[in-house]
Design a binder for these strands. Structure first.
Lengths: 223, 223
DNA sequence: ACCGTCGGTTAAGAAATCGTAAAGGAAGCG
DNA sequence: CGCTTCCTTTACGATTTCTTAACCGACGGT
């Protein structure tokens, strides 16, 4: 299990690193958001422990950047017990929020709980449907073994529909669950993304066999 | 969805049971760890709500025993806001940890969230009537295994009538419940849709056996 | 049998829905 | 700052679906 720790206080990072190594994790440390982003892309950690108060860009920005493409669990760490920050963090998709000074054992327990939840068997990570293979962990989608170059939204939409294969979703439901609950976007936007996906995975985009329209309802993945 | 509640305070279990039954869960109650383990093995619940403070063996032991073999989600409930317990609970594999007194609606929300994550599907809505099969989740209607291509209204009407098989509905009632309360259309519109459905599911459209007219009243589904 | 009402049937026009292309804007990146 | 990629909106046309209206036969009461 790989852990990415992003904090600019050496005292903190050293303590965390020692503790988590003892618990059997591989740890990577960055002392800025930029360095953190670089490391993230390179090592693709299983979880991020992120300090909000960072030089230059705040931790919020990094969280947003990561969440745009990946579902990697993020735990916020902050010196401020500010309730506003807490809410902001959780709204942004953080999986947990811990204020300094924190109990080290508690943090370890929370990390383990989140990892168990996010990597546990109920959620099958890699999805295979016919000649289609989607791996959310590496953010790689393949068609007949050939990597497709999907945009973040395309990927998220295809992954969601393929994961819930057969089930029909209205455009609104897709916006809720792929775009996010608070995305105020025209529902026709879904159509456009569906079209782009069809051009990639359908042999004949006029006779869709995988991404099927259910007239009056929405779309579903078949296969 | 089956819920196993393990707590030795009748006041708590009764409240929980009432609330979750109202939400549509099947509930099973045990007032000790031993009884809880017996019930667990027999009913294989989808989720366990577990009090830590139990006579004889503590809830921790039960959690460990269950987790040795099964991945059933467990929510801990405790009167103590003791940080040590909290950590212990999370470390042991609890999926959540709630301290008494707790907000009932919040607990329901957490239970639903965890179940959604671990099973991915809510309820079984599929209707089967003879050679007819209607699945609203995939929006697929089949006759002898062959998919019929129903329009949205046709699908909704057939699903409603089949679901309330045997019951007669006036055209107005059908408009209310299939078209919607605020639909302002002629009641004869129903006749037309009934005809289209008959042409699809009746062997002899002149002698309807499934979508039967009740003269002077309306229509009913037989089967 | 007669007559009034009810339901069956059909076709045409209206309305809704979807596919598609293209333009503008936002955000990331060097 | 300029470039690129990605996202969203919008408009128009094609197609499907819905509704209405009209006509006709069937049924039931008298």
């Amino acid at each position: 299990m790989k852990l990415l720790i992003i904090d600019d206080e050496p005292a903190i990072t050293e303590t965390l690193e020692a503790k988590f190594r003892k618990e059997g994790f591989s740890t990577f440390v960055a002392d800025s958001a930029e360095e953190g982003m670089r490391l993230f892309k390179r090592v693709k950690p299983d979880l991020i422990i992120l300090d909000i108060m960072l030089p230059n860009r705040s931790g919020f920005d990094l969280c947003r950047a990561v969440r745009k493409e990946f579902a990697t669990p993020i735990i916020f760490v902050s010196a401020r017990a500010d309730e506003g920050d807490r809410i902001k963090g959780l709204e942004m998709g953080a999986d947990d929020y811990v204020t300094k000074p924190f109990n080290m054992s508690e943090l370890v327990a929370r990390v383990k709980a989140i990892l168990r939840r996010s990597t546990g068997e109920p959620v099958q990570d890699i999805i295979e449907r016919g000649n289609l293979r989607i791996d959310p962990r590496t953010h790689l989608a393949q068609l007949d073994g050939e990597p497709m170059n999907l945009s973040p939204k395309e990927f998220a939409l295809l992954y969601f529909l393929a994961r819930n294969s057969g089930q029909v979703f209205t455009r609104e439901a897709l916006l809720d669950r792929v775009w996010g609950k608070d995305a105020y976007v025209s529902s026709r936007t879904v159509d456009v993304h569906i079209r782009w996906l069809r051009m990639r995975i359908e042999t004949d985009a006029n006779q869709p066999e995988r991404l099927v329209t259910v007239r009056g309802i929405g779309y579903k993945f078949v296969g």
